[in-house]
Write a protein that binds this DNA or RNA. Sequence first.
DNA 1: CGTCTTTGACCGGCGC
DNA 2: GCGCCGGTCAAAGACG
Length: 325
Amino acid sequence: MEKKDMGLSVKSEDVVDSSSSLLNNGYQFSSVFDFCEVERSSSLGFMELLGGHDYSPLLDVPQLSTMSTVKASSDTTGKECSEVLNQQQPATPNSCSISSASSEAVNDNKTLVDQADEDEEEEKQKTNKQLKTKKTNLKRQREPRFAFMTKSEVDHLEDGYRWRKYGQKAVKNSPFPRSYYRRTTASCNVKKRVERSYTDPSIVVTTYEGQHTHPSPTMSRSAFAGVQIPQPAGVVSGGFSTTNFGSVLQGNYLSQYHQQPYQHQQLLVNTLSSLSHPYNNSSSFKNSPFTTQERVQLCNPGTTAFLRDNGLLQDVVPSHMLKEK
DNA sequence: CGTCTTTGACCGGCGC
DNA sequence: GCGCCGGTCAAAGACG
């Protein structure tokens, strides 16, 4: 399963590398997406790319999710994996996933509105314990989920939002527990689950569920301010600030409105990819049955504006590169 | 004192 | 109906 759109390519199993513990959040334009290298990893079979959702829960962009909404089956249960597999995909590599999903998005928007109403209702019900029973009678509608894998030594990756841990459970067939987080903002019903892959302990699987009901807290300085993350010099992947696919998708979404030539980005991609990159030494990649040709450089046309802003990569990209325009 | 984490209990869905 | 499992609740404790 692979989709390409304006220089974007997303494969079914994507690993985001994170030397740091800092993740970009879903509302922001991801730097890592602009330059990260994504490859199918054979050892990470628990994560499937599913096309069933028409929007990313981290985005307010319903049209995008069929591109790369990643649904994680938490472990070996396989329950969720079977839900929306084999969804239609664009036949042509350059076909626009956004437009292909637009018709479905109309229906999905409707669903979202309905779901938002239900969530609001649920919020009220929470205050009334008596209605708790009533709540259980309603068939629980699960929010679309959005998962991504990150190579990180830190379990809970910072993403710009404040989270409160409300639970932790042992994961079946895994020595690593799964942590449940919820936004500290009461009005925001986004949740996330964090667990470590039992196949590769260096990989953290983060699953977001729900939509933020407010702008990103880190968006205030500029459109890309939030992803300006101080990193130790030379830490390329960390400097990219890893991302989730919400930001990935948003990046692509933005590109729809910033269709500018992306020679600059390609230059950076080429240059940065030649730098020392943890992926290159990752055993999971070494063991991949997929050829290096299958690795894709993600380059987002929408980053031109960002580059001018210098906000995102100025900590990691040599200054002379930033001047190369 | 407010916020956050921990952790056992509880609940609902689902398969057998 | 029963048991398993994922997800959530909520009290208690830790921490700044």
